[in-house]
Amino acid sequence: MSNAHSIPFRAILRHVLLIAGAALMLAPFIWMISTASKPQTEIFSSELHLIPHQLALAENLREAFAKANLLRFLLNGVIVTISIFVLQIMVALPAAYALAKLRFLGRETLFALVLFGILIPPQATAVPVFLMLHKAGLLDSYAALVLPFTISVFGIFLMRQFFKTVPDDLVDAARMDGISEFGIVWRVMLPAAIPAVTAFGIFSVVAHWNDYFWPLIVLNSEQLRTPPLAVAHFRNSEAGTSYGPLMAAAMVIIAPLVIAFLFAQRRFIEGITLTGIK
C-alpha cells in the first residue's frame, strides 16, 4: 500500500519488454496496412514513411477486387476449412473414444502410432499423397484440398487426452441407459468435449485457411484458389508486382480470422492454454 504511487522498476522493465515484443510482432501488419494505403508512386519512393501522403486504400482495394475474384477465393477458403474441420471431427472423435475408453488388443500400439504420426511433417508425405490424388484423378478439385487432411492425428491425440478426463462412470451410465457406442461418442462425449473441440477447431481452421503450400501444389484452376493463393496472384505478372493491391488483398483475406479472433478472444486463449501449444 505504501508504494501505491511509485511504479516499481521491475514493472516498467516488464512493460517495456512486452511493448518491444508486441511492436516487433505487429510491424509486418502495420507495414501491410501502410502499403495498402499508399499509391504506387509512394510505395517505390526512397524515403521511409508509414503514414501515406495521399490515401489510396480505396483505389487499391478496388483494384484488388477487380483483378482477382476475391469473394470467390474467400468462399473457397470457407468451404475448404469447414469441410476439413467437420471431417476431422467425424474421424477423430470415434477414434479418440476408442483409444481412451474401450479396452481392446493393440490399443497401446495404435496410440503409439498416433503419436508417431504427429512427428511426420506434411511436406514429407506431400509427394506420395500428390501421386495418389493423381491416380485417383482428384487433382485440381476441392477433394484434393480436403481429403489429405481429414485424418488429423493431432486431433485424435488431443481428443483422446481430453476423453481420458471424462469419468468412466458417465460412459457406463450411458451404456446402462441404452445408448450405443457411437451414440455415446456423439451424445455424451462430444458435449463434454466442447472446449477441446473448440480449441482444435481454432488450430485446424487457422492452419488450413493460411495454408499456402498444399493448394499451390494441387490446384491449377483459378476458380478453386484459396485465399493465400489469391495474394500470390498479384505477384507474378510480367508488368511487375503491384504491391498496393497485393497488400489490400492480403488485408481482406486475413480479415475473417482477425474478426473471428476479436469476437472469440477468450475462447482462443482458453484453447491455446488447454492444449499447451504456443
Binding site: D172, A173, P191
Partner: peptide, 9 residues
Amino acid sequence: FQSYALYPH
C-alpha cells in the same frame, strides 16, 4: 454411481 454420472450438458 458413486459420482452420480449425470450428463453434464
